[in-house]
């Protein structure tokens, strides 16, 4: 594989993101770095399996006509995914300019993923890129194949919480547009909304915590 890393873009807890060239294509390199604190055998196992899984999920999303970065190359042993560099703006930065359409489109994207039995696991406005007229969803590091309402509910919960923390005054309106788009591609959306309600009342989420009875 001919690759050339040029500049680091982001260092997360699990992976590093680099911009560079794959042959002559501008690309993104996502590398799951080895962890000194993990047993070497377990470390290799986890990094390899998560890399394969993430690539599979991205590919499957693409097959279900969700705009995701194209996968150029996968190197499981080195826990590396090479993918398309998407030119554009992080949606969070331009969200206010057209939040109604953006919210609806995000709803469609998540609806498509969910009806393809994919959950994203990190639905925030920082994980969408506005490229021309298109919205592309990125970072499937916490994604999973799942058809459980629980996992789908978590996706909605994460998005709503993200709206509330970043755009609190229009959060509710945006979420309604989101549901409009979501329901176009996910038929049983009302069941997921019920689940969402339940999730928001759980103890481990501080703000919406139910009152625990003491005696």
């Amino acid at each position: 594989m001919e690759i050339k890393k040029i500049e680091p873009i982001k260092k997360g807890a699990e992976a590093e993101i680099w911009k560079g060239f794959w042959f002559d294509l501008v690309s993104i390199f996502k590398i799951r770095v080895p962890k000194a604190w993990r047993h070497p055998l377990l470390d290799q196992k986890i990094r390899t399996s998560r890399t394969i899984k993430e690539a599979r999920i991205i590919y499957s999303a693409m097959e279900n006509s969700v705009r995701v970065p194209y996968i150029y190359d996968v190197d499981p042993e080195n826990a590396l995914i090479v993918m398309e560099f998407i030119e554009g703006n992080i949606l969070k930065e331009v969200f206010k300019s057209n939040y109604k359409d953006f919210s609806k489109e995000i709803g469609r994207i998540i609806g498509k993923l969910h009806s393809s039995n994919i959950v994203h696991g990190d639905v925030t406005l920082s994980n969408f890129i506005l490229s021309g007229n298109e919205i592309c969803i990125i970072d499937f590091g916490l994604a999973d194949f799942s058809n459980r309402d629980e996992d789908r509910g978590i996706d909605l919960h994460l998005f709503l919480r993200n709206l509330e923390s970043s755009f609190s005054s229009i959060a509710k309106e945006c979420f309604n547009y989101f549901i409009e788009g979501y329901s176009e591609f996910f038929e049983n959306y009302d069941e997921i909304l019920e689940k969402l309600d339940e999730i928001r009342k759980r103890g481990r989420y501080v703000e919406e915590r139910r009152k625990i009875k003491t005696f």
Binding site: G12, A13, E14, K35, W37, R38, H39, L42, I46
Partner: peptide, 22 residues
């Protein structure tokens, strides 16, 4: 025993590392 310990501690370390970064 080794596997149990490694998995159990790795789960914790992973969330701790995320928390540090965050």
């Amino acid at each position: 025993a080794l596997s149990f310990i490694e998995y159990a501690y790795s789960m914790l370390c992973e969330t701790v590392e995320r928390a540090v970064v965050y």
